[in-house]
Simulated assay, not measured.
Amino acid sequence: MGTKTNRGLQPATTRVLITGTAGFIGFHLARKLLAEGFIVHGYDGLIDYYDVALKRRRHQMLADAPYFTATEGMLEDQLLFDATVDDFAPDVIVHLAAQAGVRYSIENPRCYIESNVVGTFNVIEAARRQQVTHLLMASTSSVYGANTRMPYCETDKADAQLTIYAASKKANEAMAHSYAHLWDLPTTMFRFFTVYGPWGRPDMALFKFVDAILDDRPIDIYNHGEMYRDFTYIDDLVNGIRLLLDAVPERPVDGIVSDGDSLSPVAPFRIVNIGNSDKVRLLDFIEAIETSLGKRANRQYMEMQQGDVPATWADGSLLRRLTGYRPQTDFREGVGRFVAWYREYSGK
């Protein structure tokens, strides 16, 4: 199906550059790869979109590993990023750094173009120049936008993005495809769904809800709680990414692609959903938080927010075909793990 297993990927000699290692997902992925013996270099701007102290704590933990080094810098700084890539000489690049946040993109769209479009172009161009064996880049379920047919499948048309964040990620997919076609650059884009877990981002619902409930502050529940999300636990997500490192897309012979595969007919390029393949009602998620905390929330019901969608739900069959893996952490278990981490981290 236009895929080869990267059998030459030996951790002790494989050099992986990860952008966004001070971020939630990048930190967890780097920690997993380091535990397996990979040589990892992190690149992160440590911007103040949320608590920089949390980001520095993550980087400090990674720095305890003997095969981790890092550069602090912005992706838009082409000279610094190019010098970092040339000096480290990675075999694989995993691009996770981005200006995140669907709602913030409505307030400050320009920074999404600078970071997610210009910065990502610099990553793709560096990967081409370095001739990496595999470029893996983060996209998002938000690119499905106004699609209403669920579960979302990678082969569905996705041309109706609802926010500049989603549009910037769709632009990343388009740029990466063109480079894969022109330069035979093996590229995998993974579309994340609602990722949660320990060391998560303070701007995301789980972190905000737990913090507010413990402080007796009300929580805002949009669309009166009639929202559905494919909640994906962080360990499941990074397991999926790790396995995809070895699933290197190949340009298909004669443009023939098997049914259900998102492999491009003209490039070694593929898009893969990584989700729990289940949709959970927001009110059920909140009840799981209350159960883990042993405390009821002061619920403040709100209308739907601009740019939001009522539901997301991943078709995870392609990930299973490529790797044999299916994320399956139950959201109640995952919430419990987050709450235990948060109590220890915050001292509350």
Rank of each mutant, 00 (worst) to 15 (best):
L33T: 05
L33S: 05
L34T: 04
L34H: 08
L34K: 14
A35V: 10
A35C: 04
A35F: 02
A35T: 13
A35N: 03
E36C: 03
E36A: 05
F38Y: 10
I39D: 01
V40K: 11
V40A: 02
V40I: 12
H41G: 14
G42K: 11
G42S: 02
Y43N: 04
G45L: 14
L46Y: 09
I47K: 05
I47F: 03
I47Q: 01
I47Y: 04
D48S: 10
Y49E: 08
V52C: 09
A53T: 08
A53V: 14
A53L: 04
L54S: 09
K55Q: 10
K55A: 11
R56D: 06
R58F: 14
H59T: 08
M61L: 14
M61N: 12
M61C: 10
M61F: 13
L62R: 02
L62I: 01
L62T: 07
L62E: 14
D64Q: 14
D64Y: 11
A65L: 08
A65V: 06
Y67V: 14
Y67D: 14
T69N: 04
A70N: 05
E72F: 10
E72S: 08
G73F: 07
G73T: 08
M74E: 08
L75F: 09
Q78M: 07
L79W: 00
L79P: 01
L79S: 06
L80E: 08
D82R: 00
D82N: 06
A83P: 00
A83W: 02
A83L: 14
V85Y: 01
V85M: 01
V85T: 10
V85P: 03
F88R: 03
F88S: 12
F88I: 13
F88K: 13
A89L: 00
A89C: 14
P90R: 07
D91V: 07
D91F: 09
D91Y: 01
D91G: 02
D91N: 07
D91I: 00
V92C: 03
V92G: 01
V92D: 08
V94S: 03
V94D: 06
H95I: 10
L96P: 13
A97P: 04
A98R: 09
A98N: 07
Q99L: 01
Q99S: 11
Q99V: 04
Q99E: 15
A100G: 10
